[in-house]
Computed example of a mutant assay.
Amino acid sequence: MERKLTTEQASDYNNLEKMDTFELLSNMNTEDRTVPLALEKAIPQIENLVDAIYSKMKDGGRLFYIGAGTSGRLGVLDASECPPTYGVPDTMVVGIIAGGDGALRKAVENAEDNAELAWEDLKKHNISSKDALVGIAASGTTPYVIGGVKAARDQSIITGCITCNADSPLSHEVDFPIELVVGPEFVTGSTRMKAGTAQKLALNMISTTVMIKLGRVRGNKMVDMQLSNKKLVTRGVQMIMNETHVDEATAKLLLNEHKSIRKAIDTYNFSK
Results as ranks from 00 to 15, higher is better:
residue 68 A to S: 02
residue 258 H to G: 09
residue 62 R to A: 05
residue 272 K to S: 11
residue 180 L to Q: 10
residue 156 S to C: 12
residue 181 V to E: 11
residue 117 L to S: 08
residue 74 L to W: 13
residue 236 G to E: 14
residue 199 Q to W: 05
residue 90 D to V: 03
residue 132 A to V: 13
residue 114 N to I: 02
residue 216 R to E: 08
residue 209 T to P: 05
residue 162 I to F: 06
residue 250 T to Y: 14
residue 245 H to Y: 14
residue 208 T to P: 05
residue 12 D to A: 06
residue 269 N to L: 15
residue 257 E to H: 15
residue 17 E to K: 09
residue 152 A to G: 01
residue 174 V to M: 07
residue 22 F to A: 00
residue 267 T to D: 15
residue 166 A to S: 14
residue 87 G to I: 07
residue 208 T to C: 07
residue 222 M to A: 09
residue 211 M to Q: 06
residue 77 L to H: 12
residue 58 K to R: 11
residue 39 L to K: 03
residue 70 T to P: 02
residue 153 R to H: 07
residue 13 Y to E: 01
residue 21 T to K: 01
residue 40 E to A: 11
residue 39 L to V: 07
residue 232 L to Q: 10
residue 114 N to R: 00
residue 98 A to N: 05
residue 155 Q to W: 04
residue 39 L to D: 08
residue 165 N to S: 00
residue 28 M to V: 00
residue 175 D to Y: 12
residue 223 V to D: 03
residue 231 K to P: 12
residue 234 T to I: 14
residue 226 Q to T: 10
residue 118 A to F: 08
residue 213 K to Q: 11
residue 188 T to S: 11
residue 58 K to P: 03
residue 72 G to C: 07
residue 48 N to Y: 02
residue 111 A to V: 01
residue 149 V to A: 09
residue 66 I to E: 09
residue 171 S to M: 10
residue 112 E to N: 06
residue 239 M to R: 14
residue 178 I to E: 14
residue 107 A to W: 04
residue 144 Y to I: 13
residue 249 A to S: 15
residue 164 C to Y: 01
residue 210 V to C: 05
residue 131 D to T: 14
residue 182 V to A: 11
residue 130 K to L: 11
residue 249 A to P: 10
residue 272 K to M: 13
residue 189 G to E: 15
residue 256 N to V: 05
residue 109 E to N: 04
residue 73 R to T: 06
residue 24 L to V: 00
residue 205 M to W: 07
residue 143 P to S: 01
residue 44 P to H: 10
residue 26 S to V: 03
residue 178 I to H: 12
residue 245 H to P: 13
residue 252 K to L: 15
residue 31 E to R: 00
residue 62 R to G: 05
residue 169 P to D: 09
residue 23 E to F: 03
residue 153 R to G: 08
residue 100 G to D: 02
residue 137 A to M: 12
residue 183 G to R: 06
residue 257 E to V: 07
residue 196 G to R: 09
residue 191 T to M: 11
residue 27 N to G: 01
residue 98 A to E: 02
residue 120 E to V: 09
residue 13 Y to M: 04
residue 253 L to S: 15
residue 193 M to K: 08
residue 109 E to D: 02
residue 254 L to R: 14
residue 62 R to W: 07
residue 206 I to D: 08
residue 44 P to A: 09
residue 227 L to D: 12
residue 192 R to M: 13
residue 185 E to R: 13
residue 78 D to P: 10
residue 163 T to E: 05
residue 91 T to R: 02
residue 46 I to R: 07
residue 251 A to G: 14
residue 191 T to N: 12
residue 58 K to Q: 11
residue 141 T to E: 13
residue 217 V to Y: 13
residue 84 P to N: 01
residue 254 L to N: 15
residue 224 D to R: 13
residue 62 R to D: 07
residue 11 S to N: 00
residue 114 N to S: 04
residue 114 N to V: 04
residue 192 R to G: 09
residue 186 F to E: 08
residue 25 L to P: 00
residue 71 S to Y: 06
residue 58 K to N: 04
residue 96 I to T: 02
residue 52 A to W: 08
residue 236 G to H: 13
residue 164 C to T: 04
residue 120 E to S: 08
residue 242 N to D: 15
residue 26 S to D: 01
residue 106 K to I: 12
residue 269 N to D: 11
residue 95 G to F: 01
residue 33 R to Q: 03
residue 255 L to R: 02
residue 209 T to D: 06
residue 157 I to H: 00
residue 16 L to A: 00
residue 1 M to A: 04
residue 61 G to E: 02
residue 30 T to N: 09
residue 109 E to G: 00
residue 153 R to M: 12
residue 36 P to C: 02
residue 59 D to V: 05
residue 189 G to V: 15
residue 238 Q to G: 12
residue 156 S to L: 09
